[in-house]
Amino acid sequence: MQAADKGQATDLDGTDLRIGIVQARFNEKLTQQLATSCIDELVALGVSAKHIKHVTVPGALEVPIALNAMAESGRFDALVALGCIIRGETYHFELVANESGAGVTRIALDHELPIANAILTVENEEQAWARAEEKGRDAARVAVEMANLLEDLS
């Protein structure tokens, strides 16, 4: 049985990778925690701070357009989407969650570029705080692993 059949070890070496991060400012304290955790983890994985481009946008619905611009630039090996959507009393939660998620996925597929989607969709602020730090770190690991995997597959 080949290694691929048994399950491969993940490649989390971020050396020489270029990563773009788009952070929604809505629920900014929470999204800043996501960003801080993500950037800290990227650096811990070997991504040079000078190879991390971090931009902010007003909210989760604006994340895909910034991701698209980054993807079209050809300067990044992977991207990260950061945001926090907390359920309210109206249908707006579903609209924002569904449309931002669909936009992120479409850009990843259209550009064949990995995008770690760490736009939290939660019921309340307590749930968001319970997830923010770990989801930021997870997004960094996903971005690095998928950038390396796609490089190996090309």
Rank of each mutant, 00 (worst) to 15 (best):
A24L: 00
A140M: 04
L34W: 07
T105I: 05
Q23Y: 03
Q127P: 04
A139C: 02
H54G: 11
R131G: 07
I21R: 03
F76C: 01
L79W: 02
E99M: 01
A4L: 04
I52D: 11
G101Q: 02
V43T: 10
P64E: 00
N148R: 07
A140E: 11
T31V: 13
Q33W: 01
V104W: 02
A147G: 03
I107W: 07
L42V: 03
M70Q: 00
G7C: 11
I19C: 11
A60I: 12
A9S: 13
V142G: 03
N68Y: 03
M1F: 05
F26R: 02
H51Q: 11
A44D: 15
S73D: 11
L12N: 01
N27A: 15
K50L: 05
R106S: 15
T121Y: 00
A116K: 13
E62P: 05
V122Y: 03
E123F: 01
Q2E: 12
T15P: 02
F26N: 00
H54I: 04
T31E: 02
Q23A: 04
K29R: 12
A132L: 04
I21V: 15
I65C: 14
M146K: 09
A97P: 10
G101N: 07
R137D: 06
A60G: 14
V55S: 14
L45Y: 02
S48A: 09
E99Q: 12
Q23I: 05
L45G: 09
K29A: 14
A132H: 01
D110P: 14
E62W: 00
F26P: 12
M1G: 09
T15A: 12
K6F: 10
N148H: 05
K53E: 14
R131V: 04
E145L: 04
T10V: 11
R18M: 10
Q23W: 07
A116C: 13
W129A: 06
L30R: 04
A108H: 00
E94T: 04
V55A: 12
Q8R: 14
D152N: 09
L30I: 14
I19H: 00
D40S: 10
N68P: 10
L120R: 04
E126D: 15
E89H: 10
E125Y: 09
S37K: 11
S100A: 12
G14N: 05
R141D: 14
Q33F: 00
V55F: 01
I119S: 08
F26V: 07
E89N: 13
T31G: 10
A139Y: 01
I19F: 04
E145F: 00
L79E: 10
A128Q: 07
T36H: 03
A71C: 08
F76K: 01
E112Y: 06
V43M: 11
R75Q: 15
L153C: 08
I21L: 13
Q23L: 00
S154N: 14
M70P: 03
D152G: 13
N117I: 05
I119N: 05
L61D: 15
S100M: 10
A60W: 01
A3N: 13
P114G: 08
L61E: 12
F26I: 08
P64F: 08
V104F: 06
M70K: 03
A44S: 13
T36R: 02
F26H: 13
C84H: 08
G136E: 02
L120E: 09
L45N: 02
V80G: 06
E112F: 06
V144I: 07
A81G: 11
D110A: 12
L120M: 12
